[in-house]
């Protein structure tokens, strides 16, 4: 289990592992926003929480199609399925590795990008908290989508089509926390809902992911 996590982290950090691509995408997206909506700082600061959440979500989506497909292509997934490790733990560990290499860095750079978008001072704390609570759910849901499409030749686009609707509740509550926090409003309710969704998704979805992965392996 730990070995699998360490291997995935190593693979992500070595050459060609794609670490940092998500971050670069997040940065570019944030830079492009003022070009498309105009440079007025009042407008930017009002849309900043939502834009940053959407950017983080899309950056997460970007690396999902490699999450299981690489192991599927080179036969590692077959071997993992015959190993004395339940497939449920394999997908959970894979999701964790994805979060550590994609979600967590996004959380850490989000405040810097918040500066670019004139995020109100009160918003930084809530932006980081909401991303910290929400991005694990994005990784776990994304792993489910990756498991569904793992056997397909051009699964990337389909993966987005399947995963994005599933991201709706997380996005709504996460962005709501960030937005309310930035506006100095009460954040407890959406924060609890966000935490609840993340907890439930982590607890239950790996079973669905493992089930569809078994179907795809046979």
């Amino acid at each position: 289990m730990i070995a699998l996590l360490l291997r995935d982290l190593k693979l992500a950090f070595r050459a060609g592992g794609g670490f940092g691509l998500g971050l670069a995408f997040f940065l570019i997206l944030t830079v492009l926003v003022p070009f498309s909506v105009g440079p007025q700082s009042s407008l930017l600061s009002s849309i900043a929480p939502g834009v940053l959440w959407l950017g983080a979500l899309l950056a997460c989506l970007l690396s999902l199609d490699r999450l299981l497909a690489l192991d599927w292509e080179d036969g590692s997934l077959d071997l993992l399925a015959t190993a004395p490790v339940p497939l449920e733990s394999v997908v959970t560990i894979k999701a964790l590795a994805h979060w550590l290499t994609t979600g967590l860095p996004l959380v850490l750079v989000a405040p810097l990008l918040g500066v670019l978008l004139n995020l109100p001072v009160a918003g930084f704390f809530w932006l980081v908290i909401s991303l910290l609570l929400g991005t694990p759910a994005l990784s776990v849901i994304g792993t489910f989508g990756a498991a569904l499409t793992v056997g397909l030749k051009r699964g990337g686009l389909l993966l987005s089509l399947l995963v994005l609707p599933l991201y709706v509740p997380t996005l709504i509550f996460g962005a709501e926390v960030a937005r309310r926090g930035a506006a100095g409003m009460e954040t407890t309710t959406p924060l609890l809902m966000l935490a609840g969704i993340t907890a439930a998704v982590i607890a239950l979805l790996p079973f669905a992911s493992a089930a569809v992965l078994r179907v795809n392996l046979r």
Binding site: A3, R7, K10, L11, D74, G75, L79, L80, A83, V85
Partner: peptide, 26 residues
């Protein structure tokens, strides 16, 4: 212990890293 058509080898890991990984999984 199954060995299929595909080698299941990660090109960016060294030979011993590849083996050590599977040793600890099993």
């Amino acid at each position: 212990a199954y060995a299929g058509h595909f080698d299941g080898i990660k090109p960016t890991l060294t030979v011993s890293e590849n083996l050590t990984f599977w040793a600890s999984v099993f």
